[in-house]
Nucleic acid binder design. Structure first.
Lengths: 338, 338
DNA sequence: TTGAAAGCGCTAACAC
DNA sequence: GTGTTAGCGCTTTCAA
C-alpha cells in the first residue's frame, strides 16, 4: 500500500507547515502564488484527498443523510431512494441507507448508529413492528434533542414532526371511483389488517367512494389479508363467492397480481368479468397479463420531497417550523385490467 | 437541543478526567468500582453515545463497508444488498450504499467519496458505461494503494482482484438444456448486445447446449435486443416467424415477461405451444401468468459471499491472496411457463 | 506570507 | 486508582 498522503506528509515533504498546506489547497490569498502552485501540484500528483472523517469531526457536519427504510426489495422504496439520492447529490450530500426489515429492534439499532455523529439528518419510513408495538421512544428521544428528521410514507401519527405522505384515503377513493365510473357496483377490496395504516386509509377511501355513490357495503367483499397464511387462498375465497364482485381494489400490487392469477385459475376473464385495480408504483404491474391498472404512488417524488424538506432544515437553520406535512397526490394509471 | 453529552462534559460534571471516564465506560479494572458505577450511571442517564466519527478517526477504521451498485430498482441487486447487509451486520459492520446509475462519472465520484476515509472496504458491481468505455483507472488506482475491494456480478475482466460471479455460461446452458430435456429442438434466445458480458455469456451457454445436442443454430432465432427501441416489437418479430421456435430462453426476466405478453397477444399458448424460461432472481416471475420458469441467480448468496470475502480481507490482514474468484452456481426454478 | 497552537471527541501510553 | 499528554487529520485563529 503506497503510503497515504495527508496534509502533514505534504507539509513535511515540502518543508512548509500544515496550515500553509491547508490554506494553499483552498486557494487562500494568504499564501503566495508560488507556494500555492507548488503545493497544489504536489497534492495533485500524489492524489491527495482530504480525509472526510477528519473534516466531519472538525466541521461538525458530515454532509451525509441517513435513510432508514423497512425493506428494499420493493419497487416503491427503490423509487423513493432514487428521489432522495438525486436531491441529496445535488447539494453534495451523501446517503447512508439502512434497512429496518420492519423490525423494531433493528430500527432502534439503525437510529443509534446513524445518530452517533455519522449523519446530519435522518429520513425514516417506520417499521411495521414499531406500529404494532406502539413504541416510538427512539424517535421521541431524537426529536427532544432537536435532531433533524423527516418521516415519509409510513409515519407515526401522534408525533408532531415533518412528514411526507401519500394521500392514501384519496388514493383508495380514486381507485374505487375508477371502478364505479366503469359502471361497476359490486366492488370488493383486498386490504391489510387494520393496524397497517396505509391499508386502513386506502380502505377508508374505498368506503367513502361507495357511500357517496349509495352503494351498499357488502361485508363479505372486504378481505383483510393475513400474510402469515396462504394469500392466494384468501383471495380465491372472495372470487368463489356465489355472488362475487365485478370489481376489485387491491391495496397493494402484490395482492392485485395474485388476484389476477387466481382469477385466471377460476377462468374469470379480466377485465370482462372482473376489473382489478392495484395500488403501487408499478413494477410487476407492467409485466402481468393483462397489465394491471394501478394507483401511482410517486415514490420518486416522495423521496425527493422528503430530502428537500430535510435539507431545508439543515441549511436554513433559522426556521424550525415543526410538524409540516406534505401530501403527495396519487392518480390512476390505466392499463388492461380494468 | 438538549446539549450533547460527550466524554469531556461528563468528566467536567463529575470532576474526574476524560480518561477516567473513557476507561470507566469500558469497564476497565483500573478504575474503582465506585467511580465506574457513578460514571456509567451518569452516562446512561444522560444517554451518552460515543461519537463514531471520533472513534473512526482514532482507530483508523470506520466499521463500515461501501457498496456500489448500478441500480437498486432491480430485484437482483436488492437481494444482493440483503446478503451483504446480513453478513456485515453480524460482524458489527455498517453499510454505505451508493448508486452509480450505470454511469462512469457517477461511479468515479462514489469511489472518490467512499475511499476518503468513510469506509474500510468496498463492494462493487461495475456500471455498464464503465465497460463500454473501458475505463477502469479508478479501480486500478485503488488496487495499487491496496485498498480492500471485492467485485461482484459485473466484474472487470482484466483486473486481477477478488470477485464473486455467477456462472453465466453454465446458467445459459442449464436453461437451454431444460428446454431440450422437455423435448424441444427449435429454441430461440432473447439476448443483449454482445458488449453486455452477462448476456453474452448466457448466450454462449445456449449455443453450447445446442451444439452438444447436435441442434442446428438458426440465426433468425437469436435476437439481440436493442433497449433503445421498442422491446415488445423486437420480441414479437421472433414470434411471428413462419417457423417460430417452440422454446425461448430470455437472458433476463424482463425480456421473458414481455415475451409472455406478446405470446398472449398472438394467441400462442404457454407452455403448450411455446415454453419460456428466464434468467433472474425472480420477482416479476412469480406474478406473471403463467408464472415464469427461471434460472435462479442467488443474489442473496452472492452478496453474502462478497461481504464475507471482503471482511476476511479486513479482519485477517495476513493473507493477501489476490485474485480469488468465487463462482455461484445457478439452478432452474421450474414454474408454469415450461 | 507563513507558522504555532488549539480543538473537534476519543483513547492509550505513561506518569503520578 | 486517577490524571496528563499526545495524536488520529483537519482548520482556524492569532502571532510572527
Amino acid at each position: 500500500m503506497s503510503k497515504k498522503v495527508n496534509i502533514k506528509t505534504i507539509a513535511a515533504d515540502l518543508n512548509v507547515s500544515p496550515s500553509t498546506v491547508s490554506k494553499a489547497l483552498k486557494d487562500s490569498h494568504e499564501i503566495s502564488e508560488e507556494t500555492r502552485k507548488k503545493i497544489q501540484a504536489y497534492a495533485k500528483y500524489y492524489n491527495y484527498k482530504p480525509n472526510s472523517l477528519a473534516l466531519s469531526l472538525r466541521n461538525q457536519r458530515t454532509m451525509t443523510l441517513g435513510l432508514i427504510v423497512p425493506e428494499i426489495v420493493h419497487h416503491f422504496f427503490s423509487r423513493v431512494i432514487y428521489g432522495v439520492e438525486s436531491v441529496a447529490n445535488e447539494k453534495d450530500y451523501n446517503l447512508m441507507i439502512c434497512l429496518s426489515k420492519d423490525n423494531l429492534e433493528k430500527e432502534k439499532q439503525n437510529i443509534e448508529m446513524l445518530t452517533n455523529g455519522s449523519v446530519d439528518g435522518l429520513l425514516v419510513s417506520v417499521a411495521k413492528e414499531t406500529f404494532e408495538k406502539g413504541d416510538f421512544s427512539h424517535f421521541e428521544h431524537l426529536l427532544e434533542q432537536g435532531f433533524p428528521i423527516v418521516f415519509f410514507d409510513r409515519v407515526p401519527d401522534n408525533i408532531n414532526t415533518d412528514k411526507v405522505v401519500v394521500d392514501d384515503v384519496a388514493g383508495g377513493y380514486k381507485a374505487t371511483m375508477h371502478l364505479i365510473e366503469n359502471g361497476l357496483k359490486k366492488i370488493g377490496i383486498l386490504s391489510t389488517p387494520p393496524h397497517v395504516t396505509v391499508g386502513n386509509d386506502r380502505e377508508r377511501g374505498y368506503r367513502k367512494a361507495l357511500k357517496e355513490n349509495k352503494i351498499n357495503i357488502e361485508d363479505s367483499y372486504t378481505i383483510h389479508i393475513n400474510e402469515k397464511e396462504d394469500i392466494s387462498q384468501q383471495i380465491a375465497q372472495l372470487l368463489k363467492l356465489p355472488d362475487r364482485p365485478k370489481g376489485l381494489f387491491a391495496v397493494n400490487e402484490k395482492y392485485a397480481a395474485i388476484a389476477l392469477q387466481e382469477a385466471k385459475k377460476l377462468d374469470i376473464n379480466i377485465p370482462e368479468e372482473l376489473s382489478v385495480i392495484g395500488f403501487t408504483d408499478g413494477y410487476i404491474s407492467k409485466y402481468t397479463s393483462p397489465t394491471l391498472t394501478t394507483i401511482a404512488q410517486h415514490g420518486y417524488t416522495m423521496g425527493a420531497k422528503a430530502a428537500e424538506m430535510l435539507l431545508n432544515k439543515l441549511l436554513n437553520k433559522t426556521d424550525n417550523s415543526l410538524g409540516q406535512t406534505y401530501v403527495i397526490s396519487t392518480n390512476v394509471v390505466k392499463r388492461e385490467s380494468t
